[in-house]
Structure formats: C-alpha cells, structure tokens
C-alpha cells in the first residue's frame, strides 16, 4: 500500500509540474500585459518601461525558471494588475467559489440521488422516462446559457432573485441552479444505474425473502452497496465543479476565483492566471489522488494490479 501511495504521489507531482509549465507558456501566447496596462495613449517607451517593471523583458527560460523556483517555495508571485500577492487574492476569492460549489454540490446530491433511487425502484415508469429525458437535457445544457436564462426570467422579468452577488443566500440560488444541471443529471444517472445493479442481485432477493421492510432494504442494503460509485463520482464532481464555476461566475459577476481567472486572462495578468490554474490543478490532482488511494484501500485488486 505504501509503495502504491508513493507511486501515485509521484504521478501527482509530475502532473502538477507539467501543468505549471503548460500554463506558463499558454498565458504568454495571449499577448502583452504591459500594452494593456499602459493603455491606448502609451508610447512604445512607456510600454517598455512597464515591461521592465514586470520583469517581462527577461528571456522566457529565465522567467520560467524564476516561476518554477518561486512555485516550489510556495510563492505564486504578485499580480500585475491588482498589484498584490496572488495567493492573497486567491484566498480572498476562494470562499465565494467554495460557497457556490458547496450549494451546487448539495443541490446535485439532494436532487440527483433521491431521484435516482426513486426511478431505480420504479424503472420504466413515466417518472423514470421523464427523469432520464430531463437528465439528458441537464447534461447537455451549457451552464452559462442556463445562467443567462435564469437571470432573464427570475431577475429581469419576475424580479424575484438578484442577478449578482452581495445579497446573501438569495444571491447563491441562481448561480447554484445554473451550475447544477450537469451534476444533478450525473448523480441521478449513476445512482439509478448502481441501484438497478444492486436491486437485481441475489442478496436483495434474500433480504426480501427474510421479510425485511422495503424501506430498510432500499436504504440500509441496496443504497449502501451502491454508494461506492456514487461517492467516487461525487469526488470527481467536486473537482469538476471548480472548473465549471468559471463560466457561471462570469455570467453572474460572482466574486470567486472563476471570475478572477477570466479577468486575469483578459488582462494578461500572467502571475494571477498561472497561480489560479496551479491552485485549481492542485485541487483536482489532490481529489484524484485521494480517490485513487481510497479505491486501492477499498478494492485490493486495484493496488495489486498497479
């Protein structure tokens, strides 16, 4: 088990290193932040002065080494646009992103899992067919489009809910609903599928033959046995949520790291964009690492095969 964890850890570090180098080059092909910050009236000399101030006049390899060296020390650099440490701003914005992600996660579990259980118990009924059709729609629906429609209906036409942030819980509702379409659908599908598998096994037939109450059979036996894929998917979804939140945060002007990333790319704020991508990358790699280890712990075949 120890060598399995070490191997996975090595893969995680390698993934992070590749991600860091990739994002370093990607942000640099987008353009020059000095020209953008200097503005339309700036002369070539003024732009060059800014470039020197930001250290962008150094060669790319020198900048890369400096970036990686700082990263190893845990220093994500200083934002060119906001002029404060990247880590400080990410920490300030992370709670907003986690709020929206937590709300979406809760919504997707609370709606997707019970619906999956229900339709697995009553397969091929009208509710099952309807739920499957809606799930397909939910998986295909782009969250940013859903966000725009929700703003149009609930903020502009009905004036029921805020279109932006800053109104406490009511501000979370529309972004969370917009973001949750895919996650509700995926939770529904995995729960339904897992439950159907378990409900057709002999041990469930045995529990019924023993005369256990149906509620007890479903919740204590069938659901418990179906939990592994559901929990696994939830872990993956948690990581995906952070990525997916970028579009929704932008639509709702939500002050999280998604909006920050979008703005950083638009403003060519290299350190900021690099820092956010690295943080998101660490989060995803960490999630995958934990899932891998849990898998190996739960199912010895996996660690033996590895």
């Amino acid at each position: 088990m120890g060598s399995f964890i070490l191997r996975r850890l090595a893969y995680a570090i390698l993934s992070l290193a590749l991600l860091s180098v990739t994002i370093f080059f990607f942000v640099r092909v987008t353009g020059d932040p000095a020209a953008l910050l200097a503005g339309a009236d700036a002369s070539a000399e003024q732009i060059e002065r800014l470039r020197q101030e930001f250290g962008l006049d150094r060669s790319i390899p020198v900048q890369l080494v400096s970036f990686l060296f700082d990263l190893v020390r845990g220093d994500l650099g200083r934002s060119l646009f906001y002029n404060i440490p990247v880590s400080e701003l990410i920490m300030a914005r992370l709670p907003a992103t986690l709020t929206i992600c937590a709300a979406t996660f809760a919504l997707s579990v609370a709606v997707g899992v019970p619906t999956g259980i229900w339709t697995a118990i009553n397969p091929d009924g009208w509710l099952d067919r309807a739920a499957r059709a809606i799930a397909m729609f939910g998986m295909a629906l782009p969250s940013f489009w859903a966000g725009l429609i929700l703003i149009l209906v609930f903020s502009v036409n009905l004036n029921w809910l805020p279109a932006g942030s800053g109104r406490g819980f009511s501000s979370v509702i529309l972004p969370a609903v917009a973001l949750s379409g895919y996650f509700i659908a995926s939770n529904f599908r995995i729960t339904r599928s897992a439950m159907l598998d378990v409900l057709n096994t002999e041990f469930i037939t045995l529990t019924r033959a023993k005369g256990l109450a149906e509620r007890r059979i479903i919740l204590m036996h069938a659901l418990r046995s179906s939990l592994i894929p559901i929990v696994t998917l939830s872990g993956i979804n948690l990581a995906l949520l952070i990525n997916s939140s970028v579009a929704v945060e932008t639509v709702f002007g939500w002050p999280g790291i998604g909006t920050l990333l979008f703005d950083s790319i638009a403003m060519r704020d290299f350190p900021m964009a690099q820092g956010i991508v690295v943080v998101i990358g660490v989060f995803i790699i960490l999630c995958n690492f934990v899932i891998d280890v849990l898998y190996a712990y739960i199912d010895p075949r996996i660690r033996l095969a590895a």
Binding site: I151, L152, N159, A163, G166, R167, T250, G253, D263
Partner: peptide, 14 residues
C-alpha cells in the same frame, strides 16, 4: 463589466 448583467442588477435594485 457585463452590460446585460449590470442592467439586470439595476432592475433588481442591486
């Protein structure tokens, strides 16, 4: 920065 979204916020009083 998004014009449509900020107009929606004027509509809701935000």
């Amino acid at each position: 920065t998004d014009g449509a979204q900020s107009l929606a916020q004027v509509n809701t009083g935000e």
